[in-house]
Design a protein around this nucleic acid. Structure first.
Lengths: 149, 149
DNA sequence: TGACTTAGTTAGCAAAACTAAATATATTAT
DNA sequence: ATAATATATTTAGTTTTGCTAACTAAGTCA
């Protein structure tokens, strides 16, 4: 069952990608369980999260990011705005467009969930040997870099 | 703006956790955009994903994992079953329970999305310098380990 | 045995998500 | 100026989600 020959470069890249993907997926899925308050639906929470972690953006961009049609996102944003979690401002340069941004309240909401997740993740990391911790310390910023390419 | 003193251990752990968390989050959010087919609603896709990547399980476990009540999951599973993506078998040992498992069709559906995501991730990884790639190769399995604690 | 617990389902209902089509308004191109 | 395009919203409708309460069936306990 052991590999007799060294895998090709392409194979190795793919294997790293595979493991990274499933690792990230499973980790976040696990941490998600510690969220449990929020008082806000999944689609709205997801949209708010995009705004908090990805910065202010227009309606179509946000709809695209969330893979919904514009009217759907328009409603979600209106509801988030009614809850005081988001603010809409008309773009001065192009006055058809709006800029949707998370309010302090919206950021605080995401922050509370994030804090709970981080509490558990921090504990897990603290229990690791130093070399493994080191690898994770490098990997975090790297994933971010890949994500923003 | 530079740190005059070395941060405490607790602070370092927390910072690693922070970066890892946001890195994983942003990376997956980015890769998610390459999904775009599926033809299945988000709650169902998420449940199916749990089954494919987490293995067969009972209704209550699945409901817990997805943070929904049992009746809701019961219906979602029934719909997935009607689509041939999932199979229910009664547990021989405890005949109240059922075991819900993804079918080959269900696995294939997830696999297609996964393949598209991996294609992009592999390309990004291949473009990295060797040492960074190395860190990611270690981080993937590590995140998985943390997730399954 | 009979009472209790556990796993899952069914029924009925309210809320939410999502869509296409139509509309208002601003911008760009001819 | 006029037509075409782009951004966002409203309307009107369907579909899906998700809940509680009530139920069936199987296991456990005393």
């Amino acid at each position: 069952m052991t590999k007799a020959l060294p895998p090709t470069d392409a194979k190795r890249m793919h294997e790293i990608a595979e493991k990274l993907h499933s690792g990230a997926l499973r980790l976040l899925r696990r941490l998600r369980k510690f969220d449990s308050e929020a008082q806000i639906s999944a689609p709205k929470l997801s949209a708010l999260s995009v705004l908090v972690f990805g910065g202010p953006q227009g309606l179509n961009d946000l709809a695209g990011a969330e893979q919904v049609r514009a009217p759907t996102m328009s409603r979600l944003v209106a509801e988030l705005e009614a809850d005081g979690l988001v603010r809409k401002t008309t773009d001065a340069a192009d006055r058809r467009g709006i800029k949707i941004a998370a309010t302090a309240k919206g950021q605080a909401l995401m922050e509370r969930g994030r804090a709970r997740r981080l509490q558990h993740l921090t504990a897990a990391i603290a229990a690791l040997p130093a070399d493994e911790r080191k690898a994770l310390a490098i990997a975090g910023p790297l994933m971010l870099k890949i994500a923003s390419q």
